[in-house]
Amino acid sequence: MATHVKTTINNEAVEFLCEPHESLSSVLRERLHLTGTKEGCTTGDCGACSVMLDDRLVCSCLVLGVETEGMSIDTVEGVAKADKLHPIQEKLLEHAALQCGICTPGIVVSAKALLEKKADPTEEEVRFWLAGNLCRCTGYDKIIRAVLDAASVLREEA
């Protein structure tokens, strides 16, 4: 039976109907057309579906849509402000840290969560934090460099 769920997505009140078995990633993509969130595996292994749920980084494929009643969800669509990209997004472009781009929204959300927690992470800390974000194209080095670079930009801005 379809359930009526009330949430806040990217700071806006959003209501939707979904079946109990539907994952949050599928609700975001199929019902709300927020297709920035990607689905690579739907088993929690790739991180392409990363979102913030009540300020906690999670795989949205491992969350049921019905569970999010009353919760706040932040997706990659909320990261850029108007036409200004977030420094993480800018640095990913600058370092050519994406090819097919399927992993990129998950990397953006995940890296942002890290930098909000830790403004000056070591390379090792970035690698461990992003271990659950798989990229089949870039070989990771460029992604790591982009995140470290974005961290220093954010520190200067702060």
């Binding site: 906690r56 999670v58 795989c59 491992l62 969560a113 271990a131 659950g132």
Partner: peptide, 9 residues
């Protein structure tokens, strides 16, 4: 256990 994302849940 798992990734940062998995540990969130």
């Amino acid at each position: 256990i798992g990734s940062t994302q998995v540990q969130g849940r």
